[in-house]
């Protein structure tokens, strides 16, 4: 999982794109994971209730990881477990933005 996200962030770094996480680990564990794996995106912390924290609960996230892709107006364009599909859709949206659509 991590190599894919890391390289996606690198690839898109000068484009209108942001990878934003919602992390459900214990805080110390999350920070260690980020340091060890050189993770390069910002994450909301789900809180002490972790996978049952207020953000995952509000979004009805039951399977982990779940990916949601939003367009520039924060309209939902994908929601699911397929990272490849999500990446494809995200790249299509970014390309359309860059073409000035």
């Amino acid at each position: 999982m991590f190599p894919h996200e890391r390289s996606l962030v690198e690839e898109m770094k000068d484009k209108p794109f942001a990878l934003v996480g919602v992390n459900s680990d214990e805080k110390d564990r999350a920070k260690k994971s980020i340091a060890d794996n050189k993770l390069n995106w910002r994450s909301f912390w789900a809180g002490e209730k972790r996978t049952s924290g207020p953000i995952p609960a509000a979004w009805h996230v039951t399977g982990w990881p779940t990916i949601v892709v939003l367009d520039r107006d924060q309209v939902i364009c994908y929601r699911g477990y397929n990272g490849e599909e999500a990446t494809k859709i995200a790249k299509q949206l970014v390309a359309a933005l860059e073409r000035g659509k």
Binding site: L19, V20, R42, W45, V68, R72
Partner: peptide, 23 residues
């Protein structure tokens, strides 16, 4: 975020967002 700094999803309006629920 994990450093306790407040931020919002709407901060990213204008960009495509890949929102990743992970652990």
């Amino acid at each position: 975020d994990l450093d306790g700094v407040a931020f919002k999803l709407s901060d990213y309006k204008g960009k495509v967002v890949f929102l990743d629920f992970w652990g």
